[in-house]
């Protein structure tokens, strides 16, 4: 069975990690052709050709594809869909933007955030922010899906797939790119950080959040916050971890002054190691923490910061 994988491209570069992880998933379904689309896709296509498990690479370079706009990219994928039973992309912002559009144009359902491939028609995916896992079986002739990259190891670099050039589809001309603003923080991005330090309502004020930030900076970590902290105005909206915020799964998650409301747990419970610091020993966060410290955060966090590194 043939699989078309839409590679993740940023600027003219291949996003190797997400593409390689989605490739591992795609290779479980059949022979994988990697579609690399961009303003100038040649270099990214050459990178993709090195990935183990890629049988062929199609490079499509066109100005309309330079910024990942949904309409021209979806039109391109649909124009190539004919030979493929599975059409997959990593579950990135671009993949989530484009693949449902592709699915609707093909009159099939999209299967979002696939975490396990059971067989060619059957997949596991998280629902309710990971509080339940659903196994679904598709009745559609073509399966259009996004891959939750956290669930798959990255394919290695030992391949040498042939690269051919493809042509862009007609650009519907519905939208145009204005600008990209990459976050200028020195801290890592919350969703891809290896370590996250989050504060909750227990932190008490916006000023007090400085001790959370200080610990994070010591660890080279991203800063997160619970919804309660955001709603209280202690932390900005984009720091929110939880069901309605960002879902994170770092190597280490340190929850400070966070009680562990369901909505917060949904956003961080897939973290590898969870540390909780809270003065209330009954706080539900301790039920998911690998290491719990019952202590006043205003004593414990500065002490921790001082003793680390």
């Amino acid at each position: 069975m043939a699989v078309l994988l839409l590679a993740e491209v940023m600027g003219d570069d291949l996003s190797v990690d997400s593409t390689a992880k989605a490739l591992t998933a795609a290779a479980q379904l059949g022979d994988v052709t990697v579609l690399v689309a961009g303003g100038n896709a040649a270099a990214a296509a050459a990178e993709a050709a090195k990935l183990t498990g890629a049988s062929a690479v199609i490079a499509v370079s066109d100005a309309s594809l330079a910024n990942g706009l949904a309409e021209p990219l979806a039109a391109l994928v649909v124009s190539m869909a004919g030979d493929f039973e599975h059409i997959v992309a990593p579950s990135t912002a671009t993949g989530k933007n484009v693949m449902p559009r592709v699915a609707a144009l093909l009159d099939v359902m999209v299967i979002s955030d696939v975490m396990t491939i059971v067989d060619g028609d059957t997949f596991e995916r998280p629902i309710y922010a990971g509080n339940a896992i659903q196994t679904v079986k598709s009745a559609d002739a073509k399966k259009v899906m996004t891959i939750r990259t956290a669930g798959f190891d990255a394919a290695g670099e030992g391949g040498s797939a042939a690269v051919s050039d493809g042509a862009a589809a007609d650009n519907p001309g519905l939208s145009e790119w204005v600008e990209d603003k990459v976050e200028e923080s020195d801290r890592p991005d919350l969703t891809s950080a290896k370590i996250v330090v989050s504060g909750g309502r227990g932190v008490g004020s916006e000023e007090n959040f400085a001790i959370i930030e200080k610990l994070a900076d010591k660890l080279g970590a991203a800063v997160g916050a619970s919804r309660a902290a955001v709603d209280s105005g202690y932390a900005p909206n984009d720091w929110q971890v939880g069901q309605t915020g960002k879902v994170v799964a770092p190597e280490l998650y340190i929850a400070v002054g966070i009680s562990g409301a369901i909505q917060h747990l949904a956003g961080m419970k897939d973290s590898k190691i969870i540390v909780a610091i809270n003065k209330d020993e009954e706080a539900p966060i301790f039920q998911v923490a690998d290491y719990g410290l019952v202590a006043d955060l205003f004593d414990a966090v500065p002490e921790l910061e001082g003793k680390l590194g």
């Binding site: 339940a132 969870i274 290491y291 719990g292």
Partner: peptide, 18 residues
């Protein structure tokens, strides 16, 4: 188009320590 085969609880985290 998608039939739900089953819905399960996610894997539980092993209990940690204080």
């Amino acid at each position: 188009r998608l039939s739900v085969v089953k819905t399960t609880e996610p894997a539980e985290r092993a209990a940690g320590i204080k």
